[in-house]
């Protein structure tokens, strides 16, 4: 099946990108591999026939947020000797894996307890802009307004934080 092959390819790419994020020492390389993860997740959303979220993932996550992070990393001009010394990084990583594996096996056990539904065929309009927009502006109107308030708070906070003049010593 074509969809299974695509799923395996996108899943492998996203896991590889995530591993690159936590293994690369320089944050620029980590951000590049996180972009790989974001784009392959967008492909997975397209496989799940979530058209609007697919587009939003590409534009908002892989486009806006990641370019903001890359811009800040380039703006700070991080050299190799600016990076924190992480000598015992692989030791910490081994310890972290030892902590994570019980949690992960617990979560996977929960997932396996769920009923595995067959692949159903959804209608042509599933996940389109119009359908999601109708739900967003009817059932989810109050959370939508609260999110707009949150974005306003973030805007004001970012201006207050980053626009502050440095005190003269």
């Amino acid at each position: 099946m074509f969809a299974e092959v695509l799923f395996i390819a996108f899943a492998a790419l996203s896991v590889l990108g995530a591993m690159g994020l936590i293994l690369f020492r320089h944050p620029m390389k980590g951000a590049m591999s996180l972009i790989v993860t974001m784009i392959s997740l967008a492909g997975l959303y397209a496989l799940l026939s979530a058209k609007l979220i697919f587009v939003l993932q590409l534009i908002v996550y892989a486009g806006a947020i990641m370019s903001l992070i890359l811009f800040i990393i380039m703006f700070l001009n991080i050299q190799d000797n600016d990076l924190p010394v992480e000598e015992g990084r692989f030791l910490y990583l081994a310890g972290g894996i030892a902590v994570i594996i019980p949690i992960a096996s617990f979560l996977i056990k929960i997932v396996n307890g769920l009923p595995d539904s067959q692949v159903t065929i959804v209608g042509n309009g599933f996940g389109g802009v119009k359908e999601v927009g109708l739900i967003l502006f009817q059932d989810w109107l109050l959370p939508f307004e609260i999110v707009s308030l949150l974005l306003l708070v973030a805007l004001i906070g970012a201006v207050v934080l980053a626009g502050k003049r440095r005190l003269v010593k």
Partner: peptide, 14 residues
């Protein structure tokens, strides 16, 4: 992916 994210938070210092 979630567990890899937790790993990144608890093991990295950058």
């Amino acid at each position: 992916l979630f567990c890899l994210g937790i790993l990144g938070v608890i093991t990295r210092r950058n």
